[in-house]
Nucleic acid binder design. Sequence first.
DNA 1: CAAAAATGCGACCGTTCGTTCACATGTGAT
DNA 2: ATCACATGTGAACGAACGGTCGCATTTTTG
Lengths: 196, 196
Amino acid sequence: MAKDTKARILATALEMFSKNGYAGTNIRELTSSLGLGKSSMYRHFNSKEEIWNTLLDEMIAYYTSRFGSPEHLPPVPESPEELVVITMRMVDFTVHDEKIVMTRKVLAVEQFRDDRARELASRHFLTGLTAMFTPVFSGMMDRGLLRRDDPEMLAFAYTAPISALIHLCDREPEKTPDAMARIEAFCRHFIRTYKI
Amino acid sequence: MAKDTKARILATALEMFSKNGYAGTNIRELTSSLGLGKSSMYRHFNSKEEIWNTLLDEMIAYYTSRFGSPEHLPPVPESPEELVVITMRMVDFTVHDEKIVMTRKVLAVEQFRDDRARELASRHFLTGLTAMFTPVFSGMMDRGLLRRDDPEMLAFAYTAPISALIHLCDREPEKTPDAMARIEAFCRHFIRTYKI
DNA sequence: CAAAAATGCGACCGTTCGTTCACATGTGAT
DNA sequence: ATCACATGTGAACGAACGGTCGCATTTTTG
């Protein structure tokens, strides 16, 4: 029950922080929902804030390892249709992976209070997505699948609307199927618009 | 000092809620920052939660009156360049009007805790913007300024990236000039892409 | 197996929270 | 002038908060 407990505390903290925010979460509820005494938590963390900082460390580390390295870039599609497939696979993953959903929520909720959350939010919601798809569109232009244009601008114009609909899924999960359909429709519209 | 006090309480509450969230705001700090005793607040509101609900009422009423009626729709531009002007004027307003900035922040921070905030967030960040610009693009197509296409899809593809950069301004105000320049660049890119 | 380190627990501490209360003061109508 | 009402205040309340402590139990280590 040793190292496992620490991880379970972090998992539950992420869940509660994402729903009620840092200030709206209390240690008693957190630990008791784990079947743990209130004070036992302090064997693993020195304070509530240390939980928060550890969580942020993990989120930053995970994001860097998962989306920060070049080998995790999406492949350059060999056809426009493949862009749809790649996109929908990524969207499906990011919308249904509970940990990533909670990470986005907690960043949305704490972005104005914590500087590191602020910075990570910008990467999650904006710069990271653009950086991820810029080489994709650059490659598609090289392959003659898209007309020549500024690939970074295209990546931004492509990812921002998708990101907006992902946020909609986070906010109103019952609309997820509709949002996914709209993402696919947008994706096809985008290809139609920029194809040669 | 009568009715004025109630309004000042609401204004300060909006400011604090937007920065620290509902749970992270306490009445003592709120009232003392107004030069008021802690208990005086209860002459105007029965509880902290009533402040929150009143604030939400006002935000919903303001949004409805400001963006909900057809007469407040942006005009249909007579030239592509006018779309840039209209857009930048709206962005400049929405990014610099402190009350609107704080409204967006508080919606971002409370969207997962309060159902009405959730709904208003979706309107502010997504559906309202699309609904606002759909007739604009429809009109521009009628005038032969843009190629025929689905005006709602265009409105979505246009407003979502702009909205993402507005959120960036809320999160990192020091990047506002850069974000505004990127919005204008995106706007011109959009026109170039869809013009006849 | 024994010593030591890690983990869990309930009682408890001081603080802060939202809220109430008795009371003072100001203000508008009769 | 008087009465009623609205507004403001400091003290105080009970509850909930984050955090500590002494002690029991388990796990690890030599």
